[in-house]
Design a protein around this nucleic acid. Structure first.
Lengths: 208, 208, 208, 208
DNA sequence: GCGTAAACGAGACGGTACGTCCGGTCTTATT
DNA sequence: AATAAGACCGGACGTACCGTCTCGTTTACGC
């Protein structure tokens, strides 16, 4: 029987300090050289306090990233996926923002680290996907569904496939650094994907 | 001054033993628990023999994967990217083969490990991309170029973008395990991408 | 200012449970592996309740041993050092009893632990000596004084030295395990010590 | 199967550094606060190098004390137990020297620590007794045997008992600090013990 | 007999050291 | 000169306890 700690007694001060320290450190030294000892030292916390609530540095970083994403969304006044009626424009806006986010060192290090660690550790990967990735993919899917219901996409469009055609190449370039990530790349990608999927602009047939 | 060892005196027996051991072990215990000590012990080799010729376990695994890819290509009678004239069919064949490869445990472990490690370590990532990834992407690009020259693709088609639209979503699903990798997924992907890019079947206009 | 707890409100139930638990545990795992946490757990007591009343596990054990010695004396109907008029017989009886006590596992573990801890920690040693040891030595000394006053020992006999000549070798064997502790050893020791000190049997000159 | 290290490859430099550091540290902070980590740090050595060759800090200290005893004996020009023919004088000389040794801080700390640790840990105690203590007791016993053969002690004298009557009270006072250790104490002890054992001065009857 | 302050059980916390594992370097003897 | 073997220094691992510090919950006095 593993004794489970009492979450109601948890020190929020320590929790925040740990998450903050892990984000700072992963940026400073990188994921591979990130150690629990260093996090504990930087956070002014005993190691056991980390081990009590997380099972590995990856889990710490996952929570830290979630908190970061939450804060970031809030401070950016993020109110959900844009829906101006112009699907192409909306997707481009979001993908451009994603490109920018990927270029922001604050997000870069932890998210890249988690993606890599999740690729290697299936269990962690599942948690990463479920908690950080899927919620975002769901937003794309919802926007596409709305477009499909508005008749801008063929009724039979595979929404999931479409989402991954948008997100996949972007992530691929970012993760593997095969080529520079630019707004132009995002725009071109959206155009090609929508063309491939049979996108029809707002009520009028595609006259392009 | 770092003394560079004399490569002509290198023990090929040890080299092979190390590469083999690293592949076996990465399959058995995973990349994170793979240690140089264990590789040396399994290969019946001194640790220094590994450090003399490689700088990290990732480099060992990269060489091992290259050797593996070479052997595999040879034994499969791989003679280059297929070019039957039917671009869609050729791409589907290759992507289906890639799906199968990703499902093969022998390749799975080392390639996944290298991809993850490369994502985290830019220098390693560059070597990984250059030596293992780019050569494959170049084959795709060549096949697309041949189609473009045959008039099956518009003259202005961005070949690189097209390649990444094919490979990106596939890799994305594999790496992040967001959904099962199937032949059907490969086929649908090829269809959408070619549609988006303005593919015209063998000289005749697209009558779809 | 260290706030001193109110002894009148002390829970006797907890106090006994702690002392009992410490004796049980020191017998089970030995002094070195005895921990305050384990005592608290075994006693069903908060750690703070131990720290409130004692400053270290040694102090707990010292109190526990004192309580044990008190109970043991009471239940053995111990009414003080025997004085039959025959000094040699009285000393042999007491030393034999001490040999038996040293062989009793109940006393063995805590007393040995305290002796060792006291040897290493002067402050604890002083308390141990004063509270547990000296009272016993005083009994020996009193008995010898009574013999000296009865003319059985020369007037100038150094009582303290004599006591330590009796108790020293016994403790030495017990503590260092250089040889087995037997009743015969106790008897021979008493005979040699009394001979060395010029013991005269009951008023008559020594006719040995 | 515990892999046993190859003693022929052992670094003597590290070995000495560890023993020296342990002696210095036990003097500085005492046995209870002596840690393997501190020894390693002070000796400029990896912890593993200590664990490779010793199983505990007590074992390190035992080896250190043996080395110290060896050096000390050598530098003091110690050529064995004195045998001037006058047993009482010889014993007094040795016991006085022991009193001085017990007062010397260099020996005090490690030997006291080992005695205490050995009292608590039977296995360690056996090694301590066998390697450090017994050899010294054997010297006493040999000197007494020589006296017995010279007719200065009764034929039936229990040599072992006699040795422990000499060493026991001395050790008792030192370890438990019941009274100050002085040369006078040593002299008186020798006198009483020899009297009790029937010592006869060199050919002449005891006319004291 | 009721309110309140202290002792209490529980256990989270910042720390220290444990004993182990492995990284990367160095040494020795072998091939 | 490269190798198998493995000792070495260093440092992070995850665990066990330390002694302190809240938390509610009894408990027993003083009003």
């Amino acid at each position: 029987m593993t004794k489970t700690p009492d979450a109601t007694r948890r020190s929020d001060r320590s929790r925040r300090a740990i998450l903050d320290a892990s984000l700072v450190l992963v940026g400073e030294v990188g994921y591979n050289k990130l150690t629990i000892e260093a996090i504990a030292a930087r956070a002014g916390v005993g190691k056991q306090t980390i081990y009590r609530w997380w099972s590995s540095k990856a889990e710490v970083l996952l929570d830290a990233s979630l908190a970061l994403a939450g804060e970031a969304g809030a401070e950016a006044g993020w109110t959900g996926f844009p829906d101006t009626g112009d699907l192409a424009a909306d997707l481009k806006a979001v993908l451009r923002a994603t490109v920018d986010e990927f270029a922001d060192a604050r997000y870069e290090a932890p998210v890249r680290a988690l993606t890599a660690a999740g690729a290697t550790d299936p269990e962690l990967g599942a948690r990463f996907t479920q908690r950080l990735l899927e919620p975002q993919l769901a937003l794309y899917e919802a926007r596409l569904r709305s477009a499909r219901e508005a008749g801008q996409l063929p009724a039979g469009t595979d929404l999931r496939l479409t989402v991954e055609m948008l997100v996949g190449p972007l992530t691929y370039r970012w993760l593997l650094r095969t080529a520079p990530l630019t707004h132009g790349f995002a725009d071109a990608l959206v155009d090609r994907v929508l063309a491939g999927v049979g996108y029809v602009t707002a009520g009028r047939p595609d006259s392009r």
